[in-house]
Design a protein around this nucleic acid. Structure first.
Lengths: 192, 192, 192, 192
DNA sequence: TATGAATGAGCGTTCATTCAT
DNA sequence: TATGAATGAACGCTCATTCAT
């Protein structure tokens, strides 16, 4: 009884997400409208807000899931042994996070959550990124004078820096990857 | 004649900025409404948009000016000779940039400008930050294995990272300053 | 078997009414939400509508019952022999009916029922009020030039008038009782 | 300058009211939707709410204006000299007020205003009704044992009573006019 | 330059009611 | 009977921005 109810609920939720993804695939994230989502899902507006606190909550879920998928792939691949390999490995995620100005803004905005109960997927993926980096660093031939967590946080900081530059007219000469490589080399192989 | 017109224009502009600052002082940045600004300045709404392209332009100006003031102070002070001094020196600026979630969001959003002609004050202050850091690094006893610009950009990346953590419920154990110190030491004194 | 089912049904109904009354006691009639009622009664929303045609039906029942209780008291008391006594006697009922703007609105709305089968408790209590007044008038020293039913209806009309004035900012100088007394004297003792 | 602006404002307001009236004429009061009003007026939704606090405010204005028009007509006509004439004179207004259940409900709900500043047209027309009745009674051959204001209020009370009965399944045998006549005779010609 | 009424697209909300299980 | 997810049709609102005067 309870199980069947949950199933129905999950199906509805899935339909809403699928409809949203469809819109995003067609017109991009910034073009998503709640009205259009429920229209495509064949549901009432009230149903949307019964499943998601607001539009942002859906956005957090969809973007967060996509980031998670990238992290899954990173976890499934062998740990990079050079900064070049690392930059290569990070590029799919960086490209996704910068695929739209709107997406990058949402990510930055949601990456910090004011309260524990508000922590959404995107915020969690930021934690997971650090974990993935830590796993990479465990056996990699990089600097070992500082804690693995610190090294991982540094990678993250430079990823953000490289992506931010992408949206800046002052720095658009260099690609994300070039900048990332420069940063990672200086961060992980000092003196090298 | 021309001078008097310019003077009047500047006065109007100044009145609008003063009114905005008043609201910010009373209720914070996020609470600022154009309606309220023109009301206090004793003008019509249209006048606002004759002086500022949009609300964001005013926000960019006010926040950018405040950041500039902090940079002026940093430039006027002697260059830090230790990472501890550097972290200390950076804290007033970091505190301002994180005084409100809204302010930090605006700063991140404006730090990259889509086109050269759109570059606003905040974006410029980001460039200026790098310059200030470069000046600091010129004679300081920090790593010299990488270009001074790269070193400066790293400081900036870690400042952002430390401030971001501030808004994240997952990391609020450590203060901005503690994180910053940790990062700067690892970045500027590798192996040290 | 049948008895136990009926008992269960009645218990469910009673629980719903009790929960509703609890909410009313705490927050007033206007604040009552079906959601909150079933939550307190520990039931599902659907159960509510299995017992009451709609929310209004519950409201009609609760308010109607309260009015009935007042009418019981009036019937149990001796008939007033003066308009002063009559106004005194009517005040508890008037006070209840005007305890909340929402309650008075519901009463006026329900006092007329669109169809015989829709006649609810409140509409019935209006009929009962007339009957009570008729009983009062049977032996009382008031005008006798018109039918007793007409006299009774007049009392009712003036009760409504006096209560309506209560909610009007234009007339809040006089109390319900003062107005009622004025009206009743003019209605029941013309020329007196 | 100021005048021309006011003119434009008044025109917009008039267009909104005209559009609303059009809908009412076609489909009735209960069918009026804000969306439809602005659509017909060729305006934005925001404009509606810039002119009317909410939908109810528009309803109050339209219904109140209509009542006012009836009162204008009553004031322009000679004062009734018999209760029969009075009932005849009141019927157009009564018919309007009971043209729709929704309209009568709105009238009752708005006839009392919680605060002076909230007093709308409908509430004001109730005061005006009393004044019109007072003017009628000044020279008419009706009872004079009570104050003219009191006599006027009684007429009003009985109008409401007669109209309320109209919506009540228990009393729909008699017409509003018959009831009104009965009431007025008993009220204005006691002993007669 | 100044005015301020008008715009407008979409979000969030409400909450009684229905219906498949 | 009981369940509770889903419905749905407006409403109210926001508020930066535009534009005719």
């Amino acid at each position: 009884m309870i199980r069947s109810v949950q199933k129905r609920t999950l199906e509805t939720r899935a339909k809403l997400i699928a409809a949203a993804q469809e819109i995003i695939d067609e017109s991009g994230y910034a073009a998503l409208r709640v009205e259009e989502v429920v229209l495509r899902a064949g549901m009432a507006k009230g149903t949307f807000f019964a499943h998601f606190k607001d539009k942002d909550a859906l956005m957090d879920l969809i973007i967060g899931s996509e980031i998670d998928r990238h992290l899954d792939a990173l976890e499934a691949s062998p740990a990079p042994q050079t900064v070049e390999q690392m930059a290569d490995a990070l590029m799919p995620l960086c490209n996704y996070m910068t695929c739209e100005r709107y997406v990058f803004d949402v990510i930055l905005r949601f990456s910090g959550a004011a309260a524990i109960e508000e922590i959404g997927l995107i915020a969690r993926t930021f934690g997971r990124q650090i974990e993935v980096f830590e796993a990479w660093l465990a056996d990699a031939p990089f600097r070992r004078d500082i804690a693995v967590e610190l090294r991982a946080e540094g990678i993250h900081a430079f990823m953000i820096q490289a992506m931010s530059a992408q949206f800046c007219a002052l720095h658009n000469a260099e690609s994300i990857q070039d900048r990332l490589l420069l940063y990672l080399r200086a961060w992980l192989l000092p003196g090298g």
